[in-house]
Amino acid sequence: MTENQNPISPHLQIYAWHISSLLSITHRIAGIINFLALILMFFWITTFSFGESNYELFLIAVNSFFGKFILVGFTWSMSFHIFSGIRHLFWDLGYGFEIKTANISGILVVLSSLITTIIFWLFGRGII
């Protein structure tokens, strides 16, 4: 059999984004980022065993602007993944499949992940 040489109709290139599809891919990306965050945490623990100077080097890196940006990013990706995961659990129970409900729950996930990140850092910095 000769392979069908007809073109494939465009897909990702033309398909409109919905809240649901956007959050679905963000959930996956956040999951990958969380995996990287775990590696950084292991790295942090490893610096303990390499002695004080190594640990301080790590602290300097993390306290730089870029380091702080990364840490705040990790906080957000963790909280987003958790809230989005809870949304998935409700779906698994069979609730929240109407378009309107799914859109509202999606927006709630984004908002609560942002709020959690802000509160976490305000709390951690001793501001509240």
Binding site: Y15, H18, S20, S21, G94, F97, E98, I99, A102
Partner: peptide, 22 residues
């Protein structure tokens, strides 16, 4: 993976995502 593009596009207003979950 509950992307829900199906339900968003159905011209008859049906909910395939819910059926799959069921």
């Amino acid at each position: 993976h509950t992307i829900m593009n199906c339900t968003n596009s159905c011209p008859k207003g049906l909910n395939p995502a819910k059926a799959i979950s069921s």
